[in-house]
Design a protein around this nucleic acid. Structure first.
Lengths: 201, 201
DNA sequence: ACCTGAACACCGTTCAAGT
DNA sequence: ACCTGAACACCGTTCAAGT
């Protein structure tokens, strides 16, 4: 005695049952809180309990930890998109690239342990990984900034957006794992910047 | 009815019971195999079973996963030491530094997942972490190579051994997590080398 | 269709009982 | 002193039973 899907097309357009919407929202809210407090490896059982649902409900909504993570990251992705439109107003392409790399670092630092699954999703092979999409968007954006800075003669021709994406994830991972002092962190960023910058600038 | 420790000094000098030696050796052998096959996060229960001892015996010998890991890494550390003495025979300090960084990368790639606990141990605060000792040795060695290359004018003055240690661990982590193609890996290494190299060389 | 929660498997860690 | 293995706690994941 339940509603039928409308047509042969895969996507059923509307009418998610109200409890479904409520459960989904509660799961996302609880998951975000637990990711923030205990990192991306937090107990999913605890998330479900905190959302007031059984573990089965969590798995029905989000079949894998990555699926849940990707959904929770949606908000952060929108923040990053916002920041990107600010960066795009800058005149200096070298400055834009630098700020974009910092913005990505912040994004990668949203939850402790986030660099690991993101890095794993960055390889094109994992097409079924829900985190692959945001990764590829970021790689593409980085590539835009890199090309723009290259046209202005600020960045070596051999450097790609993928390279600097990898570097940014690495820095975020180093930050969260080794938690180096501020000076070391600055020197690490300088190292990378010197690495991609064209020498005569 | 067991043998007493000899004096008030902490370390009891000799005579570990023969079964103790055997158990320790079996644990190390099994652990190395499991670390190689399943990474540093492998099941300790399985290691104990494979060594033919109960879980309690494993914990008695190696109170933490890091302690077991540090003991298993001993062999690799000796290999690295050997490689170091080869590198020390090189004339070009820049070449020596480059080869040393590669040697460290190989060391960090001994087992999948090794970069994570090593990075965590690199911060001086974790003095009780058994992995801190090998880390500090490596950082010190890297610093020697960096200074030597700096004296020859090959490396920027602002760069430290710690920086390049962090970079090497990051590269190893990127390799094992994102497993990039060979080209990306080369470009990542180039990025770092361009980052620490003095421009006029 | 969706939810529930019991059930299963697996693992880390401890500790009382043995020798 | 050292070993054993049962015992406890915790978690991921599935699935039969409900609505």
């Amino acid at each position: 005695m339940w509603e039928e899907t409308m047509g042969p097309v895969g996507k059923q357009e509307r009418k998610p049952r109200s409890d479904v919407q409520r459960n989904r929202a509660a799961l996302l809210e609880a998951a975000q809180r637990h990711f923030l407090e205990h990192g991306v490896g937090t107990s999913l059982e605890a998330v479900a309990k905190d959302a007031g649902v059984g573990p089965g409900t969590l798995y029905r909504h989000f079949p894998t930890r990555e699926a849940l993570l990707a959904a929770v990251l949606q908000t952060r992705s929108e923040e990053l998109e916002q920041r990107r439109s600010d960066i795009d107003r800058l005149d200096d392409p070298a400055d834009a690239l630098r700020q974009w790399l910092r913005a990505m670092e912040d994004y990668f630092s949203s939850f402790s342990g986030l660099p690991e699954p993101l890095m794993a999703a960055a390889r094109a092979q994992d097409a079924d990984n829900p985190l692959t999409v945001p990764c590829h968007i970021l790689i593409g954006a980085t590539d835009d900034y890199v090309r723009s800075a290259q046209r202005a003669g600020h960045v070596r021709d051999s450097v790609t957006g993928y390279d600097l994406f990898l570097a940014a994830v690495s820095v975020a991972w180093t930050m969260s794992t080794a938690s180096p002092d501020q000076e070391s962190l600055e020197r690490l960023r300088d190292l990378i910047e010197n690495g991609y910058r064209e020498s005569d600038h």
